[in-house]
Design a protein around this nucleic acid. Structure first.
Length: 842
RNA sequence: GCCGGGGUGGCGAAACUGGCAGACGCACAGGACUUAAAAUCCUGGGUUCCUCACGGAGCGUGCGGGUUCGAUUCCCGCCCCCGGCACCA
């Protein structure tokens, strides 16, 4: 008897895998590929079981697909740039590069100790020039195409520390996280990616993502926020000027009784300049602009506004309506101005009520005949138009297209589609990121760094104070350069890129990670992409996935890839909670995988995390659950150990023709387990029930062995062995082989050891996933429950394969059933799947 | 407010296409083994009631209705929980 020593097995097999390069792959068009990916990690220092769960999920899939015959790409890397490392540098003085690389080394060790089957030779870290070189390359391709452009935009600014703050560094009531000073807004020239150019395509592409969680698709759809409407020009009274508004409800335009401008609307400045009480008006505008920005930080605000004193003409009614400024009108959506229809819009109604502006009802439902009370609140539904000139009596939404067409014909407006999605601001006034590869020349303006001069390397900065502007601006050798166009003196861009740029294409880099000419070769991407299975946290459901879908399309247009969607199937895994809360260092409820590994080994942790709940669901960590998983693995170990040491048999099962009932039944269980586990892992991602099925098989094997396994009472092991026929040994052998292969994705170290001890050569990487024989799953006899008027009154044992008529006849002939239907009329006999028979009498 | 996902034993959960609700595990209880304990192996359990017992009857998947021979599953109306978005005109 050999004891189960998980820690020794972990070491032995992890070493063997690395030595044999067991998980490294090459492009091989003769084999079907499978690309299995988990979202790469920010190297924070330590992986806790919450992170680790995701890697295990991916590893189950990767290991299963390997045994199913696929050429499996399963890589890992590091999302290594970012604010935390820079903040740590400010605090402790450790250079971000050092802390990041140290963290990577530690976390890599953790993942290796878990036995995750990564192709480590393809590892990438985004903070290395090898990688960010191609962030710059892609940036320049986008710049060439007008997809990267500059515009003024606001950032959070701490006046005391004299530095830009990220949104998450603005805390509480809008103060600096470090010094508590109230944060102000500051306008800077910044770089943007024109993701809006792909808005419609990104929206339509969602329809093809049938293997994504519905939730994520919906979140993306809402984020893009497409709405169809019209842009309509309202001329100003007594002026050549006009104001354009965007509306989705042109059908209510006869009820537009005033116009509202966002405080930032350019017309507000023009009005202020001409306003009779100029100073007073300008002060009010300034107050509103400040208030509006504050509101974005703190949440909802009371609707407020003031009249400009100017009037606009409603182009449909021809009547003059007042123009107001309102704090709830968004400057960066639509035209920054709206027509207010208080009769049919909640917000406008609230505003009109507060400031006593006219409310005019122009819609009612077709069956509504009486007077509509305007003060009772707005009616926002579509209906029949009233009091709407030539459109009176017509019905929305049909009338909308008619009105838009008329507006177009009159030259006062046109149909328009608006998106909530904004262009992606990528400039960061930070050190630890990819330098933006642009040079500013007095003569030539913003010039892209020539591709041949890439990468623009991040210079070494030694002091991190967190004060002052972009850290790169301090490095003169970096800033001062020559213009690539004219050779004159020039300055480099000192901002770095948002780290979301790094993560928007790393999955493509994994296809060809050492390419020094291109981000990746076309051939490599064509073979490996798209990612077949992608798993990660739901917190990336919007931005990361949307940006990746955007980059894929840009690279398609650049000619590097020929598909639209990078991720075929997506799984958003649930978090691991401890004491009802998300694990975090500050809460002190982190479960460190290394402690678990020391106590139980990697396999127990892997199995437990997969068994405890379905992958998408949150789980509460439980030490006793872990103990239970360890017990199960011990049970498997003892079973196979007992086989190897006392029963034994052929390396491959050889069957005769006659089976005892017990043998038939065990084979049925074996094949049924294969069927269930295969579909649970590959198709349904029900990893918890896959483990359950394996447990059932093990229970059945223990029952079959009738106490011959160690520790059990009764029969003497040697005597029992003598009784085993060759046939029984073959049946057991088949079950044990299948069990070891199927358990191997969950508990690879133990499985490898058992596989070897069972006499198989070449390791599990060379093993083939078992196939089930559908014939064996069919029962020879079926137990048929018989319901009479909804209650099960009898259970009949019938031969399998009876047709419905035969079964009906046998059921009605049975004495037990007869007793229940005697003297009554049989109205209906339903033979259902199951099988089950339902007899209705009355 | 809008959108999405949920609500099943003491607990985590299962039930795939409308067909024996609670598989599998945790915790618990009992038995075997042991001088004893641990470990191991075996057994038990939704709940109420009837029966000495074997066994049987009723009620049970958030609540109220509906469709159906049959509903955790489908339909209508509610309640509660979790997550996302939130003045997008």
């Amino acid at each position: 008897m050999t004891d189960y020593a998980p820690q020794a097995l972990d070491k032995k097999w992890q070493h063997r895998w690395t030595h044999d390069r067991a998980f490294e792959v090459t492009l091989d068009p003769s084999r079907p590929k499978y690309y299995c990916l988990e979202m790469f990690a920010y190297p924070s220092g330590h992986a806790h079981v919450g992170h680790v769960r995701n890697y295990i999920i991916g590893d189950i899939m990767a290991r299963t697909k390997r045994m199913r015959g696929y050429n499996v790409l399963h890589p890992f890397g590091w999302d290594a740039f970012g604010l935390p490392a820079e903040n740590a540098a400010i605090k402790t003085g450790t250079h971000p590069e050092k802390s990041t690389l140290d963290n990577i080394a530690h976390m890599k060790g953790q993942l290796q100790r878990l036995g995750i089957s990564y192709a480590w030779e393809r590892e990438v870290a985004t903070c290395l020039p090898d990688y960010y070189h191609f962030n710059q390359w892609i940036f320049l391709k986008m710049f060439e195409r007008g997809l990267a452009y500059r515009k003024r935009s606001t950032v959070n600014w701490c006046p005391k520390d004299h530095t830009v703050l990220a949104n998450e560094q603005v805390v509480g009531d809008g103060v600096c996280w470090r010094c508590g000073t109230t944060v102000v807004q500051r306008d800077l020239e910044q770089w943007f990616f024109k993701i809006t150019a792909y808005a419609d395509e990104l929206l339509q592409g969602l329809e093809t993502l049938t293997d994504w969680p519905e939730k994520v698709v919906v979140m993306q759809r809402n984020w893009i926020g497409r709405s169809e409407g019209a842009r309509i020009r309202f001329p100003l009274a007594a002026s050549e000027d006009s104001v354009e508004i965007f509306t989705t409800r042109i059908d209510t335009i006869y009820g537009a009784t005033f116009v509202l401008l966002a405080p930032e609307h350019p017309m507000v400045d023009r009005i202020a300049a001409e306003h009779p009480r100029h100073a007073e008006f300008a002060a009010q505008v300034a107050a509103f602009r400040a208030l509006d920005r504050q509101a974005r930080l703190t949440g909802e605000i009371e609707k407020e506004g003031f009249a400009t004193g100017r009037m606009a003409v409603n182009p449909f009614t021809g009547k003059e309506v007042p123009i107001w400024v309102a704090n709830f009108v968004l400057a960066d959506y639509g035209t920054g101005a709206i027509m207010a229809v208080p009769g049919h819009d909640e917000r406008d109604h609230e505003f009109a009520t507060k400031y006593h502006l006219p409310i005019h009802v122009v819609v009612r439902t077709p069956d509504e005949t009486g007077h509509v009370d305007a003060t009772a609140g707005p009616r926002t539904a579509y209906g029949q138009l009233v009091d709407s000139g030539e459109y009176t009596g017509q019905v929305a939404p049909a009338v909308i297209s008619r009105m838009i067409a008329d507006a177009d014909a009159r030259g006062i407006g046109k149909g328009e589609v608006q998106y909530r999605l904004k262009d992606w601001g990528v400039s960061r006034q930070r050190y630890w990121g990819t330098p933006i590869p642009v040079i500013y020349c007095e003569k030539d303006g913003a010039v892209g760094v020539p591709l041949a001069d890439l990468p623009v390397k991040l210079p070494v900065v030694t002091s991190f104070t967190g004060r002052g502007d972009s850290p790169l601006a301090q490095v003169d050798e970096f800033v001062n350069c020559v213009c690539p166009k004219c050779g004159g003196p020039a300055r480099r861009e000192t901002d770095t890129m948002d780290t979301f740029v790094d993560s928007s294409w790393y999955f493509l880099r994994f296809c060809d990670p050492r390419n020094s000419e291109l981000p990746f070769s076309k051939e490599a991407a064509a073979y490996w992409m798209p990612v077949d299975f992608y798993s990660g946290g739901v917190e990336h459901a919007i931005l990361h996935l949307l940006y990746s879908r955007f980059f894929t399309r840009v690279l398609r247009d650049v000619g590097l890839v020929s598909f639209d969607e990078p991720f075929k199937r997506l799984l958003t895994q649930g978090m691991v909670l401890k004491d009802g809360a998300v694990m975090s260092k500050s809460k002190g409820n982190v479960v460190d995988p290394d402690t678990m590994l020391e106590k139980y080994g990697a396999d127990t942790l892997r199995l437990y995390v997969m068994f405890v709940a379905p992958p998408e669901k949150e789980v509460e960590w439980s030490d006793s659950g872990l103990e239970g998983s360890f017990r199960f693995l011990l049970r498997v170990w003892r079973l196979v150990d007992h086989w190897v040491e006392t029963i034994g048999g052929e390396a491959a099962p050889v069957f005769g023709t006659e089976f005892t009932e017990a043998e038939r039944s065990l084979r049925r269980k074996t094949h049924d387990t294969i069927r269930r586990v295969t579909s649970d892992v590959e198709e349904r991602m029900h990893l918890n029930t896959a483990v359950s099925s394996l447990m059932e098989l093990v229970n059945e094997l223990y029952a079959f062995s009738q106490g011959t396994v160690k520790g059990a009472p009764a029969r003497d092991a040697a005597a029992a062995t003598a009784e085993e026929s060759a046939q029984t040994r073959a049946v057991l052998r088949e079950a044990i082989d299948a069990l070891v292969v199927m358990i191997s994705p969950f508990a690879p170290h133990m499985a490898e050891e058992l596989w070897e001890r069972l006499g198989h050569r070449g390791g599990l990487e060379a093993a083939t996933w078992p196939l089930f024989d559908p014939e064996l799953i069919k029962l020879d006899e079926v137990v048929v429950p018989v319901q009479v008027n909804g209650k099960v009154r009898a259970r009949l044992t019938l031969p399998a394969g009876l047709n419905d008529d035969e079964m009906r006849e046998r059921v009605l002939a049975d004495a037990l059933v007869k007793a229940h239907i005697e003297g009554k009329t049989v109205r209906k006999v339903v033979i259902a799947k199951g099988p089950l028979v339902s007899v209705v009498v009355g």
